[in-house]
Design a binder for these strands. Structure first.
Lengths: 159, 159
DNA sequence: GCAAAGAAGTTGCGTTCTACAACCACCGGC
DNA sequence: GCCGGTGGTTGTAGAACGCAACTTCTTTGC
């Protein structure tokens, strides 16, 4: 009567492994992100890099929305935005529909810097992942994306 | 002449997505890990939780080795170990083969606490992942594990 | 054996990031 | 026009991490 093989009969070891691997990943990637941020511009925060990445995807967005998606505090967002503007990486505009809100978008300089860093990263990444196929990598990305969406949905419904 | 479909002809978007999802994941997992650590024992560090998790898997190990696998500083490890011992979660023994090294192992109390937290986590996790099949979850864990191993191998070879 | 090189751990210090709170400016409904 | 709610700014305290100096012990070389 069970709806095929859902996680209801989950092997506890798999859950433990998931959290274990995520934990290891967290500690390993931390420095990596910091390095990438420094490559974009010396003194750039990891959070700043994340905001730039988000802007590179969405084109532009309101500061509060971006802060929400990356899970950042209001204060941290405020300071980060100021830093990004001072570095000339993002443009800061007041939303014409809401004078409280700020609309952020990548400056030409910011876009160039991100493009350059991405290109550099890509070269290193290709050497790193030489044993992987495109399909395997795509599957991993798809799984991560779905996992993120699942967690986010759960958090949103628990408001 | 290419060896089938390796990542050599990788779509740049996939790489961008991977790093994007990982970045989002890490910011989300951070709080989660902190909560889990607090659940084990108030005041417990995220690093402390990681050490406990590692000990739960390996049974016991030398402090330096654990610090290496989790990517922690010597100083951070020293402080964390003291905290874990003070909380009665781990036992601290001098390695009979090397009087400099410390051998760590979970105490009975530590094992009980970890078991309880894991059980509690598992219940929440089952509700969260109701839309997933065991196979999908296993694939994700396998992909993450392999990714971690790939990155670690690259770091190790660049010594 | 003994001296030098090096690894394991401890401790102190500075930096960085974050979470919390108080505050101002602006939108919305009544 | 007043009021609750939201976006943003600033200040502050706290935690965690990395770096470096120092001690103790092992190992290597002579």
């Amino acid at each position: 009567m069970s709806a095929a093989a859902t996680v209801a009969d989950l092997d506890p070891v798999v859950l433990g492994d998931l959290e274990h691997e995520l934990w290891l990943l967290l500690r390993r990637v931390r420095r990596n992100v910091a390095e990438r941020a420094q490559a974009v511009e010396p003194g750039l925060t990891a959070l700043g890099y994340g905001v730039l990445d988000q802007l590179l995807r969405d084109g532009s967005g309101r500061a509060a929305d971006i802060g929400c998606t990356v899970g950042a505090d209001k204060g941290a967002m405020s300071r980060t935005v100021h830093q990004l503007v001072d570095l000339g990486l993002v443009e800061r505009t007041v939303d014409p529909e809401d004078a409280r809100a700020l609309v952020l978008s990548l400056s030409e300089h910011g876009r160039d810097r991100m493009r350059e860093v991405t290109e550099h990263r890509r070269a290193r990444f290709l050497g790193l992942m030489s044993g992987w196929t495109n399909a395997e990598l795509s599957d991993l990305v798809a799984g991560l994306t779905r996992y993120n969406a699942t967690v986010e949905a759960a958090v949103a419904s628990a408001d």
